[in-house]
Design a protein around this nucleic acid. Sequence first.
DNA 1: CCACTTTGGCAACAGCGTTGCGTAAGTGCA
DNA 2: TGCACTTACGCAACGCTGTTGCCAAAGTGG
Lengths: 371, 371
Amino acid sequence: MNRGKGNVSGGGGGGDRAGGRGGVNLPALRGYNEALLLDLLRSAGAPGLGRAELAARTGLTPQAVSKITARLAAEGLVAEAGRGASTGGKPRTLLRLVPQARHGVGVHLDRDRIRAVRVDLAGGVVDEWSGPLDFGAGPDLVVEAVLAAVVRVRARGAAAPPVGVGVAAPGPLDWRSGVLGPVTGFPGWAGFPLREVLETRLGLPVALDKDTNAAVAAAGGPGGTGSCVYLHVGTGLGAGLRLDGVVYRGARSAAGEFGHQVLRLDGPPCRCGGRGCLEVLCLDAVARGDLAGAARLLGEGAANLVALLDVDRVLLGGRVVAAEPCVFVEGVRAVLEARALTGEPPPVGLAVAGVAEGAAALALGPLFGHG
Amino acid sequence: MNRGKGNVSGGGGGGDRAGGRGGVNLPALRGYNEALLLDLLRSAGAPGLGRAELAARTGLTPQAVSKITARLAAEGLVAEAGRGASTGGKPRTLLRLVPQARHGVGVHLDRDRIRAVRVDLAGGVVDEWSGPLDFGAGPDLVVEAVLAAVVRVRARGAAAPPVGVGVAAPGPLDWRSGVLGPVTGFPGWAGFPLREVLETRLGLPVALDKDTNAAVAAAGGPGGTGSCVYLHVGTGLGAGLRLDGVVYRGARSAAGEFGHQVLRLDGPPCRCGGRGCLEVLCLDAVARGDLAGAARLLGEGAANLVALLDVDRVLLGGRVVAAEPCVFVEGVRAVLEARALTGEPPPVGLAVAGVAEGAAALALGPLFGHG
DNA sequence: CCACTTTGGCAACAGCGTTGCGTAAGTGCA
DNA sequence: TGCACTTACGCAACGCTGTTGCCAAAGTGG
């Protein structure tokens, strides 16, 4: 292992990922530093960064940065982009990411639709396609649908193949093994090794994750280091957690069960067996047409979560939210404001990027050292 | 930076810790791999591990492991410990950690007591001392008390100084800067740079953290990789989170506010301004003498948390729990059992190691690459 | 016009894990 | 008892990493 030679994605640590951390050898170190610089350049965005600035941020010497960026430039991932203002000496020659150098594909499997996007390294959508889907039709048909969707957005001709394909599916699923669980309403999926099947059929690395996790991966934007939660209100309630910049999935990939927190002991019974779960209360309010009330309830749940995890930002999404975005954003914000323990509550916003974009971001993750 | 030469603690990544990740150079790589092997040997415990086994677990070559362990042996951190059983060839010569090679000191500042321990590398308590403390007497007196406590447990004579000193204090406090916040009941502490002051006075690295974080760091035991929560019931309610093996502190070091989750909308008012917080409900039950009811309420809050974070293990501690441990463990366990969404609920136990031991573990963290 | 600052490349270097190969020390079978 | 085989592990040479020393380029400011 750790024979990564010439490929940027070779970094990350090596070793078996079962259990503890792996050892680091020189190819892994090289890959890590390359990914680190790529990540910094991606975060920096348009104007670009000078080599000296990269050196200061990473703690590497300017000479090392020059060597590494030269390798990245040789691979076409990085290019010079004019000069910056002088600070009393020679002006820095700016470097920027070349977004078109590589691509990633993301696929969102919803219960009744499929959407696929192809994104460049900057996260911009280059191509997209969506169509109907019957998730309940079972693995075989859905696999074919995914393959067809990937073909539709995949670059044709001589262009390089995508770095990887990210697939976002309804939970529960085991992220480590890539195997689906008993999806609510579609128990027939339980135990299907979707990631493995897709990797074989596509011949590409596949990242399979829950839709909420994909959403929060995209929502965070590139290179985010803070903590952020995505709250989804649709058929059910779910949460995606990005803690200290990385998606948190929990010991058994089951983290994010946000809807079954009890908000009202002795409240109405929930399908989970409990009573007074946020999901029951919130969806009941939605069914009654009381969106403001639903938003307040969602806010209470969000406030519990904000207090526990001290997050930077709260993002909302899902079909119910999309119907009346402002009502939900304002309702949640008001509750967070009222329940803030100290200081400012975290800002509340709408998840702008889609789930498919998030899945693509997960597929590109290893390139930037987030895999 | 990154000039670590000959010192094991030099690893970890280097670079400024503000913002993103740092770059890795050769000294940092060396330190990382040394810490990794030390961590594996610590986790392995008594019988020891062979070099070949270390190589298999890390992904490094056997030759690299031999070189690294030779360096560690030269520093006295590792020693050979007999031979293992043969598996068809030459039997492996076992290596084990030398617990006495280094020490760490942990100090627990409670509201009315101070306790200090000295632990060896295996986490075993070598020396301990405790005495009364008036945390409200203010920073100056408490700093003197800490210094005195460290002197009492510190190894005398020619022994090497401790690797570091960990201090656990009531929150809120800012872990990154080492500055205390407005501690509940003792607002005079707000803004006091305890870590900096102690580092100057002691001449040793100091790790300052919330008591709940220290508790969960110890509770996890050495080298844990799963997710674990520690729930504290004392004057208030608090939680320490260890997610994927590392202590999670949140964006502003405020994570773990477990007591102010709303369990009963329109319940009794709480000092935080909300209504029906777990803390109010639970402590009211305690005040009424209804410990079983308090345990059930704690269980409901724990179940919310378990569902959200998918933790492996739940640990209980604090004076209220200590009064009737079995009632709380059984009560929480019963609720988790009833509210388990799928599969087995995580086991519930008592936090056996103390907070001071956890503080010491935080001080030893950098040695094992957990800093 | 010149001193100064800052950027960034070339070449030699120290140090990391890796490769190739030899030796030590067991097991298993005839 | 003898021999083939397996496994563990060290020595020496090596390739590749980031680092250091030095120098050219390209600005600013008096």
